[in-house]
């Protein structure tokens, strides 16, 4: 599904709340983690006040996730030993939503809970740990209430393993393929000369996270069209639009900066690491309206090492992009 963002008010909101990924005019891979949540100001607005961000796209994005899961159930994977972690993340996520959005409440009596979400018109009673008390698994259920993609990592044998996930908006990777892989295996394709230090360091950092602690990082890449689902699993649907980017007429409207706000949380009861990915898209046309962003992006692109340019799929597009930004 390709959406457009023509309404000027929504467009302004989107720019104002966009988590712009550059703070200077260079970009390098690093273990760029910081405690979360925390308000971050950009030149035109702000983001990051809360971990979850149920914004004006909430209902539409959740409907899109539901359609994707109905079409392709393999976007949700859960190895059997992740059951406790899945219940843990459900409670963590619902509580976090309650603290973020007044339209949601969670009432508890012992192991019995009642979840009410007035934005979706959901009212669901369930018993903690009782799979039969929910219409779907707990991880899937959380995936129906938050826009973020969810990955759960189990920590054992001094490593992290991505053993469960509900991921519909992956950027050029596949949850089904990743399931059961170690943190180091997952990051195998990332250009090594630049990430070799940062990736193992990030894993050690995550393994030391204390119960309940939350950190975040940004990652950025680019997408053709306002398209959330650019998973490897649906490449057949979007691969061609990516190729067309090189010579399409409306480049500034089609080319999107894709920023992922990624949260890393040590879940309190299972001890699993939660990896949340929230995807924000901003068309180049919008970037061009902010002179500072325009200049930063141009400078970053100019100096980015070739390996990273290749990895992010920008080798062909760079000249065209720089012509627009310049």
């Amino acid at each position: 599904m390709v959406q457009t963002m023509s309404d000027p008010v929504r467009r302004a909101t989107r720019i104002r709340r966009f988590p712009w990924p550059f703070t200077g005019d260079r970009y390098a891979y690093s273990a760029n983690v910081e405690p979360a949540p925390g308000l971050r100001r950009t030149i035109v607005g702000e983001w990051g006040r809360t971990i979850l961000d149920p914004d004006e796209t909430y209902v539409a994005e959740l409907a899109e996730r539901r359609d994707i899961l109905a079409r392709d159930p393999s976007r949700h994977v859960e190895l059997p030993h992740m059951r406790a972690a899945s219940w843990d993340v459900l409670l963590w996520g619902l509580r976090e939503l309650v603290g973020t959005d007044p339209a949601m409440t969670l009432d508890r009596q012992g192991d019995g809970y009642v979840w009410t979400n007035r934005r979706l018109g959901t009212c669901q009673a369930f018993r903690y740990g009782d799979d039969a008390s929910l219409p779907m698994g707990p991880l899937m259920f959380l995936g129906s209430q938050i826009q973020e993609d969810i990955v759960l990592l189990d920590q054992r044998e001094d490593r992290l393993w991505a053993d469960a996930g509900c991921v519909t908006f992956a950027s050029n990777w596949s949850m089904a393929f990743t399931a059961g892989m170690s943190f180091m295996e997952i990051h195998g394709p990332v250009p090594h000369d630049f990430a070799d230090g940062a990736i193992p360091r990030a894993e050690r950092f995550l393994m030391r996270l204390g119960a309940g602690q939350a950190y975040r990082r940004l990652n950025w890449t680019t997408t053709a069209g306002y398209r959330l689902d650019t998973a490897l699993d649906s490449y057949a649907d979007w691969g061609a639009s990516r190729v067309r980017l090189a010579d399409c007429d409306d480049f500034a409207d089609v080319f999107h900066m894709r920023v992922e706000v990624q949260h890393l949380v040590r879940l309190p009861e299972s001890g699993a690491i939660l990896f949340l990915i929230r995807t924000y898209l901003l068309p180049l046309a919008d970037i061009l309206t902010v002179p500072e962003w325009r200049a930063q992006f141009a400078s970053v692109l100019t100096h980015l090492p070739d390996d990273i340019i290749q990895y992010k799929g920008l080798a062909v597009l760079r000249p065209r992009l720089l012509a627009h930004l310049g």
Partner: peptide, 9 residues
């Protein structure tokens, strides 16, 4: 300072 955990440098 950023991470405050000895990881980001």
């Amino acid at each position: 300072a950023m991470c405050r955990r000895g990881v980001c440098g």
